[in-house]
């Protein structure tokens, strides 16, 4: 009993330490388009990830992607491919890279980079049309990226 409590405390301290070691958009390391390390240090929550996927002001992935698993979301777009089986095709690290900056995987793709804060032409302040100042807040924060990756990992066929 006592040992369990101590073990639990150590694990909690370890998690807290990892959470503090969040990787900022400028420090992300891509290996062939993939990101091995968790960006937030906290495991993603697939349910939150679905919210990111479907919400226009967040990932708005549904604007471009359909999938059987998201068929409850009306009017999915078709600018991007259907994502059925994405988790069979890609590893977690590759999916993290795809969401963070898909241009590292698909050169010149129209898919926006969701975890990037500088290097833009005429960056705006969100959707106001006014100028924004780099570094911008990335479109998704570290945890939101982890959440949507966790959600994508459920896209199995």
């Amino acid at each position: 009993m006592k040992r369990q409590i101590i073990f639990g405390m150590v694990a909690a301290a370890f998690c807290a330490g990892a959470a503090m070691a969040e990787t900022g958009p400028a420090n992300v390391e891509y290996t062939d388009g993939a990101i091995t390390q968790s960006l937030s240090g906290t495991p993603g929550n697939p349910e939150e990830g679905k919210v990111v996927f479907s919400t226009a002001s967040l990932g708005n992935c549904v604007a471009c992607h359909a999938a059987e698993i998201t068929k409850d979301l009306p009017f999915p777009g078709d600018v991007g491919p259907a994502l059925d089986g994405a988790a069979d095709r890609w590893t977690e690290a590759e999916l993290r890279g795809l969401v963070s900056n898909a241009k590292m995987t698909f050169e010149g793709t129209v898919m926006p980079a969701f975890y990037k804060s500088s290097g833009y032409i005429r960056p705006g302040n969100n959707y106001t049309g006014k100028a924004g100042t780099e570094p911008l807040a990335p479109i998704l924060n570290a945890q939101q990226v982890e959440d949507v990756v966790a959600f994508l990992l459920t896209f199995k066929e």
């Binding site: 226009a56 708005n60 549904v62 604007a63 471009c64 009017f75 999915p76 777009g77 078709d78 600018v79 129209v110 926006p112 980079a113 833009y120 032409i121 005429r122 960056p123 705006g124 924004g132 911008l136 479109i139």
Partner: peptide, 20 residues
């Protein structure tokens, strides 16, 4: 912009497709 999209990305490369 932060979405890094040109007029051509939407109206040349993707006309006929749907965004939502």
């Amino acid at each position: 912009g932060q979405l890094e999209l040109s007029c051509a990305n939407c109206h040349e490369d993707n006309n006929g497709n749907h965004i939502r």
